[in-house]
């Protein structure tokens, strides 16, 4: 109350509504495809809670969302994004375009500016012009479109590796030639697998399993990427596939 001297209270143990559940996610865009990947370990401190908790989710046939950070916030956030996309579908009788989903996510994150979702989001998929795209977000909604991005516990291990292998940073092309602007699907998959095996080797919160979602633009095929399981609703537009690999469990 104004005017009255404040009463000195003993410091209380404050309930902390957040936790960190480890793990790492990453996404790379190609010319006409996009790969979104994440490990499947969920941990708290030194405790492995489960060896299989998905962090990557199909939103539509052209959009896949990876969430990393506080798992409870992440799951709730994905649930709410999916709900908004369903409402959009009912209102407009079509799936929301990728760039619109990106803006939706930024709005939803910023709406919680003063009690944020403790989550790093990476959205991957196919843009309306058919190009592969990756959008990355911070917990309160700052976002940008990129070609590749890593986030989570092993971000600092993986991102410089991606700079080198995807953006060809610090590499000089042979005289008269230029670096490719986009990599083929097979190469990108190999880079993703290498990145996660490296991160698993050196980071205790990364491991157990790897889930890679592949989003293909309308008309293109997997071209020799075997054993990817299709999960798209329709096969005549953009298509979504999942590819799973084991990672070390120690």
């Amino acid at each position: 109350m104004p005017g009255t001297p404040s009463i000195q209270r003993p410091t209380q143990h404050q309930f902390n509504p957040y936790s960190d559940n480890g793990g790492t996610i990453l996404a790379i865009a190609g010319a006409d495809f996009s790969i979104i990947a994440g490990d499947t370990r969920q941990s708290e401190g030194y405790n492995i809670q489960t060896r299989y908790a998905p962090k990557v989710f199909r939103l539509t046939d052209r959009a896949v969302l990876a969430v990393n950070g506080f798992a409870a916030d992440g799951n709730m956030f994905v649930k709410k994004v999916k709900q908004r996309l369903e409402w959009y579908r009912h209102a407009h009788a079509k799936d929301m375009p990728l760039r619109a989903i990106a803006r939706l996510i930024q709005t939803m994150l910023y709406a919680q500016r003063f009690f944020p979702y403790y989550v790093y989001n990476i959205l991957g998929g196919i843009e309306e012009d058919g190009s592969g795209a990756v959008y990355s977000f911070d917990p309160v909604g700052s976002y940008e479109r990129e070609t590749c991005r890593a986030a989570g516990a092993a971000q600092s291990l993986v991102q410089p590796f991606l700079d080198n292998q995807v953006y060809f940073k610090n590499q000089v092309p042979p005289p008269g030639r230029a670096h490719p602007t986009h990599l083929p699907l097979r190469d990108v998959l190999d880079i993703v697998i290498d990145a996660f095996t490296s991160a698993t080797e050196r980071h205790i919160e990364v491991g157990d399993g790897l889930e890679m979602y592949i989003v293909l633009a309308k008309g293109r095929t997997l071209q020799g990427v075997e054993a990817a399981q299709e999960i798209s609703a329709r096969t005549d537009g953009e298509r979504v596939f999942v590819l799973r690999r084991d990672l070390k469990k120690d």
Binding site: L157, P160, F161, N164, K169, D194, R202
Partner: peptide
């Protein structure tokens, strides 16, 4: 931590001096 990540991805056993030079340089710079 960045060095760990890149080195784990780029390094392989049995590199000759010039290849080792390229590997360590790329690892450090990136």
């Amino acid at each position: 931590d960045k060095l760990f990540g890149v080195a784990e991805g780029l390094w392989e056993p049995g590199l000759e001096p010039e290849d080792l030079f390229e590997t360590i340089s790329q690892t450090l710079l990136n």
